[in-house]
Nucleic acid binder design. Structure first.
Lengths: 102, 102
DNA sequence: TCTACATATTGACAAATTGAAATATACCAA
DNA sequence: TTGGTATATTTCAATTTGTCAATATGTAGA
């Protein structure tokens, strides 16, 4: 054991990164994020239909992803449009789509 | 609903990414990965001491991270040295350390 | 072999997460 | 206001994950 640096990440960054990874560590949530990254903004029901998942589940996950800062939303009438909160996610997804990960 | 692309990621890639994110979505595991990225290879007990966590827990997590392909290990005598499995993780960590994520 | 040390694995319980139906809320139009 | 639609929230059983002491396995040297 020596005295070299233990970490470059603050506790805050670890906490943020952890909560982000937790959310992305679920197939449906990752699919949703990827769909929004590809298609741009979508409303909740359309995402629910596209993924064939219950509206309540999709709405819940969209909210969590938004609270984490990964998505943003826009209200139009009685519909809510969700989209990726650039540039946080786009960079990560491209990193994921690229060669290093199989 | 139209016929545009739904996903660029195969189910396999979603599954791999999901399992990877699950592992990184834990403060101790993320710390371990970051430490190894900074220090190079370390043996299990040194990581346990540095992080002040039980040896069994650290060993368990190191194994999981290795099985996912994020770490690799090398046996030397009765010690096991773990290190990051480049370049998969380094890219991701740099992406994380950089500006886009707060 | 025996001993000491490093690591891996197991077992048990607490804690967190998942999934989906039921319900509530918000908005618009008539 | 009333009804219809879109979304958000609540609830809870089932499942998964976290934690760590105890134990087992593996390795090297005497």
């Amino acid at each position: 054991m020596n005295e070299t640096v233990v970490s470059t990440m603050t506790d805050d960054k670890i906490e943020f990164a952890t909560s982000m990874f937790k959310l992305l560590g679920h197939p449906l949530r990752l699919r949703i994020v990827e769909i929004l990254d590809l298609r741009g903004e979508m409303m909740v029901n359309d995402i629910a239909e596209l993924t064939e998942q219950p509206q309540s589940t999709v709405s819940l996950y969209l909210n969590k992803l938004k609270n984490c800062g990964l998505l943003k939303s826009r209200r139009d009438g009685n519909q809510t449009y969700y989209s990726v909160n650039e540039p946080k996610l786009h960079i990560l997804l491209n990193c994921l789509r690229g060669c290093p990960f199989e």
